[in-house]
Design a protein around this nucleic acid. Structure first.
Lengths: 131, 131
DNA sequence: CTAAAGTTTGACACTGGTGTCAATGTCAAG
DNA sequence: CTTGACATTGACACCAGTGTCAAACTTTAG
């Protein structure tokens, strides 16, 4: 698929898709015309990247993070010892963000509940696994 | 306490504390000399603000969010119907961020585990409540 | 009293994430 | 062939969050 379709399916603007590629967060094949071409797997990838960036993770880290993820999936025992430490560090940062957001989420919920606006809570179901 | 101490205790620079105040996220009394003075409760508040901002919530929303929280605490039945909807909307955004971060956190953990770097997981304990 | 440390406001500047526009190229439909 | 939709690259620009520096004042320590 071409960039326009990818954008439509992920809700991420073409501008950002190109930007992410420029930041090395994405790779795209090129058709003979020069057009970028994407596969199904890119849809997931793009959503993921956008989500993380929006959640305050700088692109530089998003890369490290998703790369590690891929490596793990193909269970390469690639553990350059030093990357591991960087990830561990990042882990506590991520956890901090999660905690902070979780508190706020709960606050919002309580508030809505306390003000008889429970109705609005319908649209917010979903996972959010345990620690 | 004065701004310097507050900064030290929260790990947030004085620059940002002033910035947050300017954005109406913080209020500070002034000593006769003009120095800002803070109470214990500000420590919590500042950490909270910084955390949310770092988690990608724009200051404008942080305000709405924390204000609602305060209102709830003093259980004022202030539910301007329209604010409630904004909060509900924001709620799904927050939940999305949480989900995205949670996935990444788990990925990092698995990765570290899969590469014998479990040792580094020590420092990451903590809550993260259920949905 | 003086020097050092902390505070105030205000300005300048940078970075990262995005929007938007321009000029050009490609492709599919009429 | 022409038109219109979509791509490409590159530039300009904006906003939010921060750092940093300057000039002036206050407070604390010696």
């Amino acid at each position: 698929m071409k960039i326009g379709e990818l954008a439509a399916r992920t809700g991420v603007t073409t501008r950002l898709i190109r930007y992410y590629e420029q930041q090395d967060l994405l790779e795209a094949d090129r058709a003979p015309n020069g057009y970028r071409t994407y596969t199904e797997s890119h849809v997931e990838r793009v959503s993921r990247v956008a989500g993380l960036v929006q959640a305050g993770i700088p692109t530089r880290l998003v890369k490290v993070l998703l790369d590690a993820e891929l490596a793990a999936a193909r269970d390469e025992p690639t553990c350059p010892r030093e990357v591991a430490e960087q990830l561990a560090t990042e882990l506590v940062g991520v956890q901090a963000r999660i905690d902070c957001l979780t508190r706020s989420r709960d606050s919002i919920r309580s508030f809505l509940k306390a003000t008889q606006n429970e109705v609005l809570l319908r649209e917010a179901a979903e996972p959010a696994l345990t620690s």
